[in-house]
Simulated assay, not measured.
Amino acid sequence: MSRTARLFQLMQSLRRHAPPVTAQQLADDTGVSLRTLYRDIEALRGLGAIIDGTAGYGYALTEDASLPPMMFDDEEIEAIVLGLREVQAIADPDLAGAARNALVKLQARLPDAQAHRLQYAVLAADRIKRPPQPTIDVRRLRQATWDESTVEIDYIDANGDSSTRRVDPLSIVFLKETHSLIAWCHLRQAYRNFRLDRMQNLRVTTSSFRPRRVPMLRAAIEELSSCWPEGSAMVAKSPDPAQS
């Protein structure tokens, strides 16, 4: 492997691992000795890469516009295009727009040959039947989920009965053909799935359930996954519903 290729590979390893990543891990990834790894780190710093850390502690990469471009192999490019096109096909309008913008930005940052492959990728995703459109502001719901803020919604169940629910939002999911919210329902004192196209009047409260979202989500998935339709997939942060 040429030194240039090795430095690109080292950059990719720094991007891929959660910081701080040890020198030994980076050396194993690039197939070099620790002594060579330390020299390569200094070479990247000399080229403008902002790499914090030292030997014995670990390293962290701070991305910068002057860094060498990201390098993907052909399969990785196809995977990225397929994933973002699937988001365009099934996500709410804001997220679909973000996926389109992400593809444009990525294409602009790639070398010409790879940008061409991204533009004319072999794989594609589309839906003849689009999922029902959410009836609430999904961007606000996503933000409340990230912020771990309790929300209130007016909800219409499969039988047409309406109720007001106070829930802790855990994840927005795509289950088979609809978008749903996995949440802890204060009324039922249980985990529930709520379809986004049956929600009305989203209200974000000042109550927080931080920092319990991640363990709650694990428990909810374990409890609810047996009720999900066959072929359902997690999307964004997010699986149709066992009826609430």
Rank of each mutant, 00 (worst) to 15 (best):
A233T: 14
S208L: 08
T135L: 10
N193D: 15
A65P: 00
D126Y: 13
L170T: 06
C185E: 04
S225Q: 15
V32Y: 01
A115T: 02
R192P: 03
Q88F: 01
V173G: 10
A233L: 13
I80K: 03
I172A: 09
E86A: 10
G48V: 07
L175T: 02
R195L: 13
Y57D: 10
R117C: 00
A233I: 15
S244W: 06
W146D: 05
W228S: 01
F194Y: 14
A49Y: 11
R35N: 14
A79C: 11
H186Y: 11
V204F: 03
R140H: 06
L196H: 08
L44I: 10
C185N: 07
I90Y: 07
S162G: 09
I50W: 04
M11D: 00
R3M: 11
H17M: 07
A23S: 15
R100A: 09
D157L: 04
D29L: 03
A89M: 07
S207C: 03
W228Y: 14
A242R: 15
A89K: 13
L123V: 12
N101E: 12
Q107C: 02
S13M: 08
S171T: 09
G31F: 07
P68M: 13
L95C: 09
V151Y: 01
A79E: 15
E78R: 05
Q9E: 14
E177P: 02
F174G: 06
Q189F: 07
E230T: 00
M199E: 07
S180R: 00
S180Q: 03
C185W: 02
L95I: 10
I77R: 10
A183K: 01
E78F: 01
E86S: 10
R203L: 10
L110K: 07
H116T: 15
A98L: 15
I153R: 02
R35I: 12
R117M: 13
N101C: 04
A65S: 03
E230S: 03
R212I: 01
G48R: 11
T150A: 05
A98W: 12
I128V: 15
T22I: 07
V87D: 10
Y191I: 05
R210I: 00
E76I: 06
E78W: 04
A91Y: 04
D197H: 14
P239C: 12
R218G: 01
A113Q: 12
R165N: 05
T205D: 01
D157W: 09
P93Q: 10
V173R: 09
L44F: 01
P69L: 13
A96C: 13
A102S: 06
Y191W: 04
I50E: 03
V122P: 03
S2A: 07
D168A: 12
Q143D: 15
S207M: 11
V214W: 12
L175Q: 09
I136M: 07
T22L: 13
D40N: 13
P241A: 14
G231R: 05
V173S: 13
T145Q: 08
I77N: 04
A124F: 12
L103Y: 13
T62N: 06
L95A: 06
A98Y: 10
L47K: 12
A27R: 01
D168T: 03
A236G: 15
P69E: 12
L84F: 04
